[in-house]
Design a protein around this nucleic acid. Sequence first.
DNA 1: GCCCACTTCGAAAACGATCTCGAAATCCGA
DNA 2: TCGGATTTCGAGATCGTTTTCGAAGTGGGC
Lengths: 342, 342
Amino acid sequence: MSTEPEVPTNRPPTLTDVARLAGVSVATASKAINGRGEVRAATRVRVLEAAELLSFAPNALARGLLSGRTGTVGLLTSDLEGRFSIPILMGVEDAFGAGQVSVFLCDARGDAIREQHHVRALLSRRVDGLIVVGSRTDPRPPLAGNIPVPVVYVYDPSANPDDISITVDNVGGGRLAIEHLLACGRRNIAHITGDAGFQAARDRAEGAAAALADAGLGLIGDRPYFGSWDESWGRAAAHMLVEQHPETDAIFCGSDQIARGVLDTLRDLGRDVPRSTAVIGFDNWEAIAADSRPRLTSIDMNLKHLGAVAGQRLFAAIGGAVPGSEKFPGRIVMRESTLPVG
Amino acid sequence: MSTEPEVPTNRPPTLTDVARLAGVSVATASKAINGRGEVRAATRVRVLEAAELLSFAPNALARGLLSGRTGTVGLLTSDLEGRFSIPILMGVEDAFGAGQVSVFLCDARGDAIREQHHVRALLSRRVDGLIVVGSRTDPRPPLAGNIPVPVVYVYDPSANPDDISITVDNVGGGRLAIEHLLACGRRNIAHITGDAGFQAARDRAEGAAAALADAGLGLIGDRPYFGSWDESWGRAAAHMLVEQHPETDAIFCGSDQIARGVLDTLRDLGRDVPRSTAVIGFDNWEAIAADSRPRLTSIDMNLKHLGAVAGQRLFAAIGGAVPGSEKFPGRIVMRESTLPVG
DNA sequence: GCCCACTTCGAAAACGATCTCGAAATCCGA
DNA sequence: TCGGATTTCGAGATCGTTTTCGAAGTGGGC
């Protein structure tokens, strides 16, 4: 159906080519194509046909040079392999995907020098704005130098409160988890989580403690079991926990991986989940949570949505608005590892 | 140390500004900054100082408009959330990261229309080349329309053999897995894998069968156990397998998730891994393989390297070379789920 | 003092699109 | 058929950089 025009020239067609073919000036061709200015209907049709025939695509460089707007955005991520950057990145893509914005992807590998280098390159490409996405929630130093375009920080907030940061409410997430366990009728709740050096671990623990306090309760062992984020810590901590506090009837885990380890140990020890002990994870990492035995209830941080919001806020900021920072709550995804008693 | 110059103008400085400050013409300023042409040393220094003072960054749009080269590349991925795109994407980033190439990221979400739309946008931005990365190894239709820039397909090859495709040698991967199990002294080897609708599943099975045939052996059950790629299939298939063929002493799994399921079931049935039954996975997905009990030996497809090669080949093609398609072998990552007998 | 070779510099064109504003074409009624 | 109002169109400037090529400046040898 699409008869490729016989254009042996490898050089992409320019507006001049279109104008020549249509027998008009470039000015008229431009107006006809963009629907601007006064162009007779017949002329417009002639130009559009010519453009179609040559499969003309306007040179975005020339357009950007003139208008000062490129319709591009820089996406700086500190670690691509990180689990958190990807959904956020998808959200950003979604936010722009429909429109005419393209996204430059830059991975700084967590190196400040490299980041600086990328920022320089992006600015020289005259991006309209920047999105900085991190993989830890600990506040990060803002981009160095005076950036002449709007910047939005996602997941990992800027240390400068005047910057626009879109983050996750980890305190609320911890609260959410505990409230669910309480609603399931559990009262002896422990918290096994990752490295206390992470703000995320401390925040979730804080939310958990607060929710328990509201119910007149405290954590089993009086404090969280801080460790690392992986399965083996989950297994080890669960062993300790069951030994020291066999009365435990629910465990809030700081990550789904920890939760997997906990599930394994509980199974080994013959403790039924969720009947004897409920387990709830964090992150809702499908590959980990959706196919365990039993399938894992978890807190989902809506990272994709976070990314989409970041894109929207950046877009608004480019338009001249001055959006403030925002913090988003997670949601609970219920599966079989938590069930009401009775 | 870096005293920000007091430049109240928000408009980024142009070469004209630099030239004026240095007291030379724009032509001279350009030559001084790019090290081209004949410029007296003293003049060059003056220009460079002026540029530094204004923190001048050349407008890449103007440069690209003139030279016809933008130093940008489009990266089309079919699914960002897919496990395979990400390492490849990192490799591509790495391949260009050091240089002056920037990468446009576009996620087509597996939708051909959307892909077409993105291609159009990228071409209008005058990218120097395109990389198309897929998430299945089944050959895909090449990009529609006549693309005026080089294209490299990664992981997912183009159906057109004249295109440049950089792929994984899944047949070789299957062979690798079996040869390792044979080297460990196993003889009764089964293969539990994913959906037979996937080329990857068929290729790996083919390689496995070939390696066994070379040793005068065949698969337990005479054929692979095709199913799905997840843990629950691994558990179910392992149950069947042990019941029907208790003599099995090794299981080659088509994915690490399947392998996790298999490990679970073997544990339930009291079969020691690796002593009674060795288990090997595929993908070497760290989060899944590195913390299981026992830790999982797996085939790593070097996806990051694949991406890096794709970047290099694209770069060569942009330079005028005509690289051919390539297929890369995986490597085995040894952990404790396979051990030599004795 | 003169001429030539060589170095250093700048004016201007070019890339491709958009926008302004003046010129040309068209239409209307009288 | 003509004058004026209204469309419709096009020449040229513009964005910021690179590159060409000619002009100017410098120095040296005789």
